[in-house]
Nucleic acid binder design. Sequence first.
DNA 1: TTGTATGCGTTATCAT
DNA 2: ATGATAACGCATACAA
Lengths: 329, 329
Amino acid sequence: MTVSRVLNGGPNVRPQVREKVMAAVETLQYRVNVQAQRLAARSSWTLAMVVEASHDAEPNSFYHSGLEIGALRACADAGFQLQMHPFSEQTEGAADAEILALATSGQADGLVLTPPFSDRLALLRQLHAAHFPVACISAGPEARQAAPSVRMDEAGAGFDITRHLLEQGHRRFAFMKGLHGHLAAEERYSGFLAALAAEGLDESSVVAARGDFTFRSGAALTPELIQAPLRPTALICANDDMAVGAMFAAHRMGLEIPAQLSVVGFDDTPVSAIIWPPLTTVHQPLKRMGARAVELLVSQVRKTQERGERHEEIIPHQLMRRDSTAAVQ
Amino acid sequence: MTVSRVLNGGPNVRPQVREKVMAAVETLQYRVNVQAQRLAARSSWTLAMVVEASHDAEPNSFYHSGLEIGALRACADAGFQLQMHPFSEQTEGAADAEILALATSGQADGLVLTPPFSDRLALLRQLHAAHFPVACISAGPEARQAAPSVRMDEAGAGFDITRHLLEQGHRRFAFMKGLHGHLAAEERYSGFLAALAAEGLDESSVVAARGDFTFRSGAALTPELIQAPLRPTALICANDDMAVGAMFAAHRMGLEIPAQLSVVGFDDTPVSAIIWPPLTTVHQPLKRMGARAVELLVSQVRKTQERGERHEEIIPHQLMRRDSTAAVQ
DNA sequence: TTGTATGCGTTATCAT
DNA sequence: ATGATAACGCATACAA
């Protein structure tokens, strides 16, 4: 018991005894057993981050590892461990049961949910009913009512980048959306429409298509968007990967960027600064989002009583003006 | 006890009783407590992957998440958990003590070491002395003697890509090395020299410089390499990021790639296929490397007696011929 | 200030 | 085939 007190910095230990204990610890190379600590404390000091392992092969390595790095740092600061849990979603909602099982298994004290799982209302309700701490990343409007969440202002980001294009004289737009069910990405489109509306424009100035966030889909959808009767002068893609695909396809079609077509994306992935021309985009602060989600979770875990209070946190985004956009000719 | 037998699929349980137990489990929503299992079993069923968190900011998200994804999959298959443990290395060897502490803490049953930690001989010795299971990723020649390891044939990769350039008529080379201490990357240079030697060439046909694996350093070093008295016609970079930086700098200098300069890299990162022109490089099978490392570890953990047997596994690499290389004019 | 008894939830071992 | 006992290693509650 005294050893426990010494090692945990407990009160009421004579300095003399403390020394002796520390000496013995050193001599015997004694190390506390984490498993026993956890059993006794009824706490695992572990958080789990739930991510989507996309059907085909690659998870979104940049997106997920940005969140993970931020989360890892925050966990280290708080004395927690982090486990990544990829779930692939074959049939709608099939992963929900597995995620719930993860929560009830006692392996983790809290869950960071990332898209698209951060929008599973049924799952959020079950976790809430189980009194299990949750923090959502980039959740949509409804899920934000149901659980603490961290996100950037997606609609604001859509608004800002559209303003940038409007200021350069663009009036006819193509918009490449992402997958259904990623509500955060959908809000980028709402912000886009809001900026248009503020300028007296509506969806009749827009030709839209839906991709799946991949380079491949960006390249595939670009010809039909660009050649639409509307003749858009600016193409807005719901993420950078699709924007890079779009630029690739545009090059292949012999289009000059930005002279003949302005292209923008969202996220500020590493490629966006490296390709030619460098892509105008919105920086998404992934590391801070991951870190804040963990901090929210840690505070929930620590003071069990205050669980369930709705906390909605918005991390500032930043417009990255680069060279893939120019004034309309 | 009977419940335990039922839930673990133990023998000697009457079907009737099994049914009753399962029914009760369902009714009571009973879940086994993982912490108690771990304490009793003296095993955490958890592996840790040790990665470098680079001094400045970004860890190498593509490299590490490739390994992580592979490792996660293998862990899931084996019923293990994975924890990522980033260590930043301010002073040489300072992280070693922390890594050793991680091993002796009982948090994990085994360690996957990634560069540069997979080359820390002193650390490997200590872990071996502690009888702690380890698997190294891309370890150098010495470390491979000290612990089970997984890697691609770095020297072979360097050889192959150099052959590709030699076949296109190149005879004067620039080589951009990576950081000291990353021995695997250093072997790429050895393979390069071996291919040269096979053609009767030596280091007098080479101008070399040392970068730090980043896009930035690739761009910074390129002018001095290209303008060297040797007038190289081909530039070999120890990884793709530097190669992309080199192409960026070459473009800025008005050089046509591949007409005036062939550029190659290593790794086959996502950018390499996306930039213009697509980069010739060597595909590094990160996911399989991560997965195999975990499998090695799991087999060590399971049969404790056979620990320490030297196992050296080489995963096949693949030359990706793309458009950044051409026959010398 | 220090130490003792007890419980955390499981499983190995040994009885029945 | 089933159950009782003990032990895993720590920390809480309480006694001294």
